[in-house]
Amino acid sequence: MSDTSTGTGKVVVNRAMSLDGFIAGPDHAMDWILDLMSAAAFPEVMAATGAMLIGRGTYEVAKQMADEDTTYDGGPEFVLTHEPPEEPDPGVTFLTCDIAEAVATALNAAGGKNLEILGADVASQCLQRGLVDEILVYVLPVLLGDGIRFSTPGLGRIDLEPFSNTQSGPVTMLRFRVRK
């Protein structure tokens, strides 16, 4: 677990979500996020981010979207997967270890800044293991009707403490501490 009193960053689940609770649309579509939000909308989040731990599915979708304007430098990227690709991806480290070890590795690489957790499955695993300090949600003004839900089935109850909400254009950012 991170400790902000020693200057170590926090583990933050970071999500963009439709108003009806989806983080990706049908067929894992995430282009609607770029239609409504840019990485520059909340510069303080980027400034506080030192590394990212990403699920393989989210990594693959982001790779497909890379041709679009997705300049998002959140520091070193770590992808947790059972099967790393045969061709290495420069700037991406593929991890095949336990979720707790993956979080520790990526948090160490964050250099005292926050570690962002991206991807429904990886985030749910981190929440189930008590590895998350905060959840940051960008609520976008769209109803998708179907897709990938905010959390995976079977996550169980996680109590949260709201501590911030900020509006930037059409996007509302909600922040919660995970109660231990």
Results as ranks from 00 to 15, higher is better:
Asp20Met: 06
Asp27His: 13
Thr71Ser: 09
Ala102Arg: 07
Ala100Val: 11
Phe22Thr: 01
Ile135Gly: 01
Glu60Lys: 08
Glu86Phe: 03
Ile148Asp: 05
Ala62His: 11
Leu53His: 07
Asp146Ile: 00
Gly57Met: 05
Thr70Leu: 14
Phe78Gln: 05
Leu118Trp: 04
Ala47Gln: 13
Pro88Val: 02
Phe78Ser: 06
Ala39Arg: 10
Gly25Leu: 01
Gly55Met: 01
Glu87Ser: 07
Asp35Leu: 07
Thr93His: 11
Val79Tyr: 05
Leu34Ala: 15
Leu127Cys: 12
Ala51Met: 06
Thr71Pro: 01
Phe94Ser: 00
Gly74Met: 00
Glu60Arg: 14
Leu118Thr: 03
Pro76Trp: 00
Leu53Ser: 06
Ala123His: 02
Pro76Glu: 01
Leu118Val: 06
Glu86Gln: 13
Leu19Cys: 09
Glu60Asn: 09
Ala110Ile: 07
Ile135Phe: 00
Thr105Phe: 04
Met37Lys: 13
Thr58Gly: 10
Glu60His: 08
Gly57Glu: 05
Glu116Asp: 12
Leu118Glu: 07
Val142Met: 07
Leu140Val: 08
Thr96Lys: 02
Ser124Pro: 04
Ile54His: 08
Ser124Gly: 13
Ser38Met: 06
Ala47Met: 02
Glu68Tyr: 12
His82Trp: 10
Gly50Val: 11
Pro141Ala: 04
Thr93Leu: 01
Gly74His: 00
Gly55Cys: 04
Gly74Trp: 00
Phe78Lys: 08
Val122Trp: 06
Asn114Asp: 15
Cys97Ala: 14
Leu95Ser: 07
Ile54Gly: 06
Leu80Phe: 02
Leu136Pro: 02
Phe42Ala: 12
Leu53Thr: 04
Val103Pro: 06
Tyr59Gln: 09
Pro85Phe: 14
Gly50Tyr: 13
Ser124Arg: 12
Glu60Ile: 09
Glu44Asn: 14
Phe42Lys: 12
Ala29Ile: 05
Ala41His: 13
Ala109Glu: 01
Asp20Leu: 00
Glu83Arg: 12
Gly119Tyr: 00
Pro141Thr: 02
Thr70Gln: 11
Leu143Trp: 03
Leu107Val: 05
Ala29Met: 12
Ile117Glu: 00
Leu131Cys: 06
Val137Leu: 15
Asp133Leu: 14
Phe94Arg: 05
Ala29Glu: 15
Asn108Phe: 05
Pro76Ser: 00
Gly145Thr: 06
Gly21Asp: 09
Leu143Ser: 02
Pro88Lys: 03
Glu83Ile: 03
Glu86Ala: 14
Ile33Asn: 10
Pro85Leu: 12
Leu136Val: 11
Phe78Tyr: 15
Ala66His: 11
Ala41Arg: 10
Gln128Asp: 11
Pro90Leu: 01
Gly91Asp: 04
Thr81Gln: 05
Leu131Ser: 08
Phe78Cys: 04
Thr49Glu: 09
Pro84Phe: 05
Asn108Gly: 14
Ala29Asn: 15
Pro76Gln: 01
Ala48Pro: 08
Ile23Pro: 01
Gly74Gln: 01
Thr96Leu: 06
Met52Asn: 10
Lys63Met: 13
Leu19Ala: 09
Val122Tyr: 03
Leu53Cys: 07
Ala29Val: 12
Phe150Gln: 10
Leu115Pro: 05
Ser124Ile: 06
Ile33Lys: 13
Thr58Trp: 02
Val132Asn: 14
